[in-house]
Design a protein around this nucleic acid. Structure first.
Lengths: 164, 164
DNA sequence: GCCAATTGCTTGAGGGTTAAAGAAATTGTC
DNA sequence: GACAATTTCTTTAACCCTCAAGCAATTGGC
């Protein structure tokens, strides 16, 4: 550790240790919660997290979404969504309907069963999340929301600068 | 939206919407950054994120770690680590050595090649992270660290309450 | 010493995930 | 209308990941 004359830590010219520690903490935090949610979904409903997430996207709309929309919203690859939808159609939770005007496009919807099951899961899920964040005050939450929004913006700026 | 007589939003008795939104934002933020790092590691070094993470754990120690240690530190399953280590031994980055005193245990170390390659990657990685969080002030970072620590503690408390 | 419980690791089944390549349909331009 | 570029979706190979079951070695009582 480098200290100056007043015994205060001094930054090295290229020390990015604080950012790195922040990233590791963010990752740890998310992994921890994600694992907890995954376990509860599995244990309580026998459903996987990706399937739950996909159904959550579809629950927000009434008239269906395309596969491309889903992959953008979920931030996963196109091929990934193809497989997920396939399995959820198979199990009767989803419904696919080819567009009349563009035969490449498929509209994916929750079936009656799918929506009913999702709503049941979502209600519990929301309580789990509330409990998981239960030690945070409303002010903590607001502040975290604000800082994460800033971090997200920063990351998007950085990503855009890389790929052009 | 429910409004009271002074046109101010009123919480429903069981509304946990803010926590849910916080979780989604946390997840989005992490997924975004993780994807960015994954892409850069792949593009720049042809390495996957899990392999980089595993090597990062090993780089912190000089005398090796067991598979169990690795799986705890990385917060992934035991079987997962078995496969990852296998592939990294195969590629010459890792080295396994059975314990003298307990023949179930294997100490995993970075090879000379592994450590050299990791150090090179880590140096760039740190710069990427610094850039990704570049818009955050030192104060923002401190505050995020603090709030994420609190969130982590809360999540651990909740997880512990579930499994006992 | 014996044996049950525990610990460290591997295996196998079932999924999830990406990047890259490709098939099918549409659009824009001439 | 022709046809190149684009868009939507699927396929493939390789990998990542979990959970549960199982094997091998060790430990702790007795």
């Amino acid at each position: 550790m480098i200290l100056d004359s007043e015994t205060k830590a001094v930054e090295l010219p290229d020390d990015h240790g604080t950012e790195l520690r922040l990233w590791l903490r963010l990752l740890t935090c998310t992994t921890l919660i994600e694992g907890e949610v995954r376990g509860r979904l599995r244990e309580r409903f026998g459903v996987t997290l990706p399937r739950f997430d996909l159904m959550a996207q579809l629950d927000k709309v009434s008239d269906g979404m395309t596969l491309s929309d889903l992959s953008k919203r979920m931030m996963v690859s196109n091929g990934n969504v193809t497989g997920l939808v396939e399995r959820l159609v198979e199990s009767g939770h989803l419904d696919r309907r080819t567009s009349e005007t563009d035969r490449r496009v498929q509209f994916i919807r929750l079936t009656k069963l799918g929506r009913a099951e999702f709503r049941k899961m979502a209600a519990e899920h929301e309580k789990w999340i509330a409990d998981i964040f239960g030690d945070l005050s409303p002010k903590d939450i607001r502040e975290l929301m604000r800082l994460l929004a800033k971090a997200k913006g920063s990351a998007q700026r950085s990503a855009k600068a890389r790929t052009g």
